[in-house]
Write a protein that binds this DNA or RNA. Structure first.
Length: 565
RNA sequence: GCACUCAUAGCUCAGCUGGAUAGAGCAUCGGUUUGCGGUACCGAAGGUCUCAGGUUCGAAUCCUGAUGGGUGUACCA
């Protein structure tokens, strides 16, 4: 239900009837319940354009506003605000419609576009660490969200599988002379060992360098080893994706190496356009206003990540046909993407109408506000963090004796992983955020457990009331009215979150929804004695729609729900 | 040096295209129960939105400057 545009239409009609030629600005949610459900603030803005005083304009709009359908009441307040009340009959009916629909009344985009979401992007030389968490889950949420709204989403995992370090790694793999399944269990250690050998053993170092060249020139033996290495390393990542409940598969992988053949062409095209300049032996594009050039080819002839990114942009826009390309990458790379996007547009790798965006996010910090590290200063492996979350989640489960050990484990997984993801997604992605176990595993405040608890509580109602539900949703009091309105806002929230790629708009909404439901439920009994049958039916349906909305919202965030906690 | 970014309650954070008395949670203090899941709900207290100007009928939000923090600054990705 596109609630806001429904209300906007009513205002628009009022404008037409009132003979106001201007396009009305959009209504917004009322800041307080006393001010109604929505408010229209456009009268003040119009006052100068039309040359009348705002209250007069507001009165004119008010006189022409239709109060028989969507709205039931409208009032002028203050300098010219128009406060709007939704019609209880109408919102009741709309909730009913939503409840009967699989998609909860949320429309599928009429003009869907192809969107590439580039996220996760682990380095095959190392194990995934906490730094990959945000890219992975923010990107996954964006992809889930756009898919749900009807866009054609192409997930792209731009893994780092190319570069000088791989010569060293496969040379070391060969030296160990085994299939890799043992020594690659701990990539971090393997990398360290290889590096140790590289530094200590000149013969090995030479061989490593030799292997870099061999891979790049397509030597079968080396490529074979390299492939084996990548397969195992990617397998580690997939374990993490599985644990994280993230929808990335091998089909989504377009590695750096995938673009190898295109790299010389990128440089050629730029040279043909005349945008290329040599500087200190390197091939560069100097952008107007930027001091630092974009280097696309090194002095020794090698290519750089900007080159690969340009090739990838071309591939995504021209081959895949994307109209929106979203890079979910650490905010520190803002400068890089700004430049690469400009070059891509100016050189025509990407058509003008394609939207390129860097979905930047901040760093994960520890309690002291420092970048998140292990006690000895190393990076925290993502898999360890997730396992710890599950262990800690287990401690929060109260009546373990009600479940089998397997059920407890399953529950702990859902709760623990959900808590980590929710805590991250609930923060405005652009700011750094402080990682805090106690906070994220708390049942209080804007946490996943509060949502889970709310959801489980509703499920408990339906376990108790196991009979057919008939009748209509009747909006009887103020809390029901607010709850129903909140439920109908879901699509507006999702649309907005899709534009801004901001998951925290979804979490904020869910938190408000659950809070509102808890209040509603506190004051409006459902299954207690003395409740009128019609009212009971109505409230059961509101509860049901609330639960479905929570579930759908968390599903987009990639978080599972459980019926019992 | 230059560029980008952030600054909101003791703490952690919301605040959408500028709108009415700036909102939550934690912590503090107080209240609600013969309890449909109290891991809940209600209330109190807590703010010169870093500072100084400007634009506007109207600014936490937009612009300029200052201060303080973070990040980036050509052949790594």
């Amino acid at each position: 239900m596109k609630l806001k545009s429904q209300i906007n239409n009513v205002i628009k009609d009022a404008f037409t009837k009132a003979g106001i030629e201007h396009e009305p600005m959009s209504v917004s949610e009322a800041t307080k319940p006393e001010f109604g459900d929505y408010q229209f603030n456009g009268a003040m803005a119009l006052s100068k354009k039309i040359g009348k005083n705002p209250r007069e304009i507001a009165q004119n709009i008010l006189d022409n506003i239709d109060l028989t359908g969507v709205l039931s009441k409208a009032e002028i307040a203050g300098p010219g605000f128009i406060n709007l009340w939704l019609n209880p009959l109408w919102i009741g009916a709309q909730c009913q419609t939503a409840l009967e629909d699989e998609r909860l009344g949320i429309s599928i985009r009429e003009n869907p576009i192809k969107v590439v979401v580039d996220y996760s992007g682990p380095n095959m030389a190392k194990q995934m660490h906490v730094g990959h968490l945000r890219s992975t889950i923010i990107g996954d949420t964006l992809a889930n969200l756009l898919t749900f709204l009807g866009d054609e989403v192409i997930r792209q995992n731009h893994i780092g599988d190319w570069g000088t370090q791989f010569g060293m790694l496969i040379a070391y793999l060969e030296m160990k002379d085994e299939d890799g399944s043992v020594s690659l269990k701990d990539l971090e250690q393997f990398y360290k060992d290889a590096k140790g050998e590289f530094d200590a053993n000149a013969d090995f170092a030479n061989k490593a360098r030799e292997y870099v060249v061999k891979i790049q020139s397509g030597d079968a033996h080396c490529l074979n080893l390299w492939q084996k290495f990548i397969d195992i390393s990617l397998g580690h990542c997939e374990e993490v994706y599985e644990k994280l409940n993230v929808n990335l598969t091998r089909d989504d992988v377009r590695a750096e190496s995938f673009y190898n053949d295109e790299l010389p062409k990128v440089v050629e095209v730029l040279a043909d356009k005349g945008t290329l300049q040599e500087s200190d032996g390197a091939q560069c594009v100097f952008l107007e206003g930027d001091e630092i050039p974009v280097i696309v080819q090194k002095g020794d002839g090698g290519y750089l990540y900007a080159t690969t990114d340009l090739a990838a942009l071309w591939y995504r826009a021209e081959v895949l046909g994307a109209k929106r390309i979203s890079y979910v990458v650490d905010a520190r790379q803002a400068g890089h993407f700004k430049q690469v996007f400009r070059v891509a547009k100016e050189a025509g790798f990407v058509p003008e109408d394609v939207k390129l965006e860097h979905i930047a996010f901040g760093t994960m910090m520890d309690k002291g506000g420092k970048p998140f590290k292990t006690r000895d200063g190393g990076t925290v492996k993502l898999i360890d963090l997730l396992d710890e979350a599950v262990v800690k989640a287990k401690e929060t489960i109260n009546n373990k004796e009600d479940y089998t050990p397997e059920q407890v484990d399953e529950l702990a997984k859902i709760i623990g992983i959900g808590a980590v993801k929710y805590a991250d997604l609930a923060i405005n992605r652009e700011s750094n955020y402080i990682f805090n176990w106690d906070k994220m595993l708390s049942f209080e405040g804007n946490t996943s457990l509060y949502m889970q608890y709310g959801y489980a509580r509703i499920q408990s109602i339906f376990r108790k009331y196991n009979a057919p539900i008939e009748g209509e949703i009747i909006i009887g009091d103020a809390l029901e009215h607010r709850l129903a309105t909140m439920l109908l806002r879901f699509e507006d929230v999702l649309s907005r979150a899709a534009v801004d790629a901001s998951s925290n708009q979804i979490t904020t909404y869910l938190y408000e929804l659950v809070t509102l439901f808890m209040r509603f439920y506190e004051q409006n009994p459902i299954l207690k004695g003395g409740i009128d049958e019609e009212v009971k039916m109505s409230r059961l349906q509101l509860a049901n729609l609330t639960a479905k909305t929570i579930k759908q919202g968390l599903d987009i965030l990639g978080i599972k729900v459980v019926d019992k906690l």
